[in-house]
Design a protein around this nucleic acid. Structure first.
Lengths: 207, 207
DNA sequence: CTCTAATACGATAGACGCTATCAAAAGATA
DNA sequence: TATCTTTTGATAGCGTCTATCGTATTAGAG
């Protein structure tokens, strides 16, 4: 038995991670240069130096190149490490701030580009909204743990829905988006709005 | 000048409505019999006795056959006809109950099938979630009218987000859906849950 | 180092959703 | 009837995605 296995992930895993990263990087570059719709899988595969078939081994659909980020894992971790005496909403606010602080400038840029594509491309936006729905279930589980109630509890799920809802309201654009590709998106500002929305919810949404 | 033009919609419009209805009816029948994914546009077009090209003239995508219902128009109308002294949430609750009452048994059945497909088919569910996002904007406009504030107002949009969020939480399944196609869906029960969720929100979401 | 089993890859073929174009058919107008 | 507009069908084509199969690479054991 050789000793190499103990160290890190094997050679195979490293190559896979490298290929995956290459595909994503090249895809985003092409999206920037030509736009999402005008970029084909064939082009992405060629740029990443893999076959088109290999693309689909790493990402089930074209949309997943954009959407499969690991950010929600970070958020979830940050949320679970909040002190239990905080109220659910307060814990989320603290976790969000913490998660934002943990992102490297590169990751922030990646996040920014993802968010931008999410707003601009209908298919991607739809998929992102679907993940909001799954977020309700996750949120319900977290709230259930903190309050000692069941994740299926109606009021627990309802609170989770309201939290996700107000976060959505900060993400979804108010006016018809004026898609001059110039519309920059400030990640820090987005998080500030989310925090403000949650604070408003905590006060009972007075209008 | 003949008198026929004065009466109702012309022959052209009637044929169009008929074709549209035929496509939808046949599509839903095939979805029931074979499932959504296993049904092709070609089959739907053949069953409705039109060409595949004509299908796309009536519905931009396959998903739209399921999703383009006129229910939200009904809801919107019911909402605007609520007395202005009601709070936004109370008005929505009253409007929902009223809208449900206005549906014929056929329309309820159509609604039921749509909701079922929406939960079962990922692509459709994603599209439906996207319409929830647009619903936030509509809701914000309605709330703005009722409260005399701007639709772009942060707190107005936030309240709209929370309302749509709790409605989502009643729609999205809690547990992993056990998709034995047997899982029936009771429309009246769904509306009851929505009403309960809004009442809970009105009380400030106590847990 | 060699052999074997497991795994990833590339190449190919094909189904399906969807778009574009153009000529034919049907409805409206006079 | 004659003319103009709208709707339709037929055809061709692009791009996403699936399935299959032979090959190459890696892991693990003798």
């Amino acid at each position: 038995m050789t000793d190499m296995t103990a160290g890190g992930p094997g050679l195979r895993e490293r190559k896979k991670a490298k290929t995956r990263s290459a595909i994503r990087t090249e895809a985003f570059r092409l999206f920037r240069e030509q736009g999402y719709g005008a970029t084909t899988i064939e082009q992405i595969a060629a740029a990443a130096e893999v076959s088109p078939a290999t693309f689909f081994r790493y990402f089930p659909t074209k949309e997943d190149v954009v959407l499969q980020d690991d950010f929600d894992i970070v958020t979830r971790w940050a949320l679970e490490s909040q002190p239990p005496e905080l109220s659910p909403i307060a814990a989320i606010r603290a976790a969000a701030a913490e998660a934002l602080g943990m992102l490297s400038p590169q990751e922030i840029e990646q996040f920014r580009e993802t968010a931008q594509l999410t707003q601009a491309i209908p298919e991607i936006r739809a998929r992102a909204m679907d993940e909001f729905a799954r977020a309700i279930n996750q949120m319900a589980e977290t709230i259930a743990e903190r309050t000692g109630r069941e994740p299926e509890d109606f009021e627990v799920r309802n609170l989770a829905g309201a939290i996700v809802g107000v976060i959505m309201s900060t993400t979804v654009n108010a006016a018809e988006p004026t898609w001059n590709t110039e519309t920059m998106l400030d990640v820090a500002d987005l998080f500030a709005r989310i925090d403000r929305a949650l604070a408003h919810l905590e006060r009972g949404l007075p209008v």
